[in-house]
Amino acid sequence: MCFVCAGNICRSPMAEVVFTSLAARAGLGAHVSVASAGTGDWHVGEQADGRTVAALHRRGYDGTAHRARQFEAEWFADLDLVVALDRSHERILRSWATTDEDRGKIGLLLAFDAGQVHLGDVPDPYYSDDRMFDEVLGMIERACIALFRQLQPAVRQGATQ
């Protein structure tokens, strides 16, 4: 699975860290591959935004190892799920997907959470303050929990085979 936002320094690293933590706490970390990337190349090789790392830290997560990268269309072949953080990323990913199978792997993060699906997009906190980073992380946590609950039975079944 790969979470995708614009520059891979704010939203998608949050989702990667949160989802990885959920899988690890459930004892399924070895059975789930989680990554993140951006649609743009502006921050390739950089750490997550300092405010992202700080927001994650305030919630008990460690985002210090993250390095930004750009999504590559050939990754579709190795991914089961590509999760866009907003509709602009979803549109870009769909334009990069060359097959219906690849397009079928793309979903919006908030679409997995009945309580937030009406919002559509996770807002970009980049031009905002720490409070907004905390709010965005809260949205991402809730949506990742909902997504994990949906995937967990299949992951558990695969882990026992």
Score class of each variant (00 low, 15 high):
Met1Arg: 05
Phe3Leu: 03
Phe3Tyr: 08
Ala6Lys: 10
Asn8Phe: 09
Ile9Trp: 08
Cys10Thr: 07
Arg11Gln: 06
Met14Ser: 11
Ala15Arg: 04
Val17Arg: 13
Leu22Glu: 05
Ala23Thr: 03
Ala24Ser: 09
Arg25Phe: 00
Ala26Thr: 06
Gly27Asn: 08
Gly29Phe: 06
Ala30Gly: 12
Ser33Ile: 01
Ser33Asp: 13
Ala35Arg: 15
Ser36Trp: 12
Ala37Gly: 08
Gly40Pro: 00
Trp42Ala: 07
Trp42Arg: 11
Val44Trp: 02
Gln47Arg: 15
Asp49Cys: 02
Gly50Phe: 06
Gly50Asn: 10
Gly50Glu: 15
Gly50Tyr: 03
Thr52Asp: 07
Thr52Lys: 15
Ala54Asp: 14
Ala54Tyr: 11
Ala54Cys: 07
Ala55Lys: 14
Ala55Leu: 09
Leu56Trp: 06
His57Tyr: 06
Arg59Phe: 14
Arg59Asp: 11
Tyr61Asp: 11
Tyr61His: 15
Tyr61Asn: 05
Gly63Phe: 06
Thr64Val: 05
His66Glu: 01
Arg69Thr: 04
Arg69Ser: 09
Gln70Trp: 08
Gln70Asn: 07
Ala73His: 08
Glu74Leu: 07
Glu74Gly: 14
Phe76Arg: 10
Ala77Pro: 10
Val82Ala: 07
Ala84Ser: 10
Ala84Asp: 05
Arg91Met: 06
Ile92Gln: 12
Ile92Lys: 15
Thr99Leu: 09
Thr99Ile: 03
Asp100Ile: 01
Asp100His: 08
Asp100Gly: 04
Glu101Arg: 15
Asp102Met: 02
Gly104His: 13
Leu109Ser: 05
Leu110Gly: 07
Leu110Val: 04
Leu110Ile: 08
Ala111Glu: 14
Phe112Cys: 02
His118Pro: 00
His118Asn: 02
Leu119Cys: 10
Leu119Pro: 10
Leu119Ser: 11
Asp121Phe: 11
Val122Arg: 04
Tyr126His: 15
Tyr126Val: 09
Tyr126Leu: 09
Tyr127Val: 00
Ser128Cys: 07
Arg131Leu: 05
Met132Leu: 14
Glu135Thr: 08
Glu135Asp: 15
Val136Ile: 13
Gly138Thr: 12
Ile140Asn: 02
Ile140Ser: 03
Glu141Gln: 13
Arg142Ala: 09
Arg142Glu: 07
Arg142Val: 00
Cys144Gly: 07
Cys144Ala: 12
Ile145Leu: 11
Ile145Lys: 14
Ala146Ile: 00
Ala146Glu: 01
Leu147Asp: 00
Leu147Gly: 02
Leu147Lys: 04
Leu147Val: 00
Leu151Glu: 05
Gln152Ile: 00
Gln152Val: 00
Pro153Trp: 06
Ala154Pro: 05
Gly158Arg: 15
Ala159Ser: 14
Thr160Gln: 15
Thr160Phe: 03
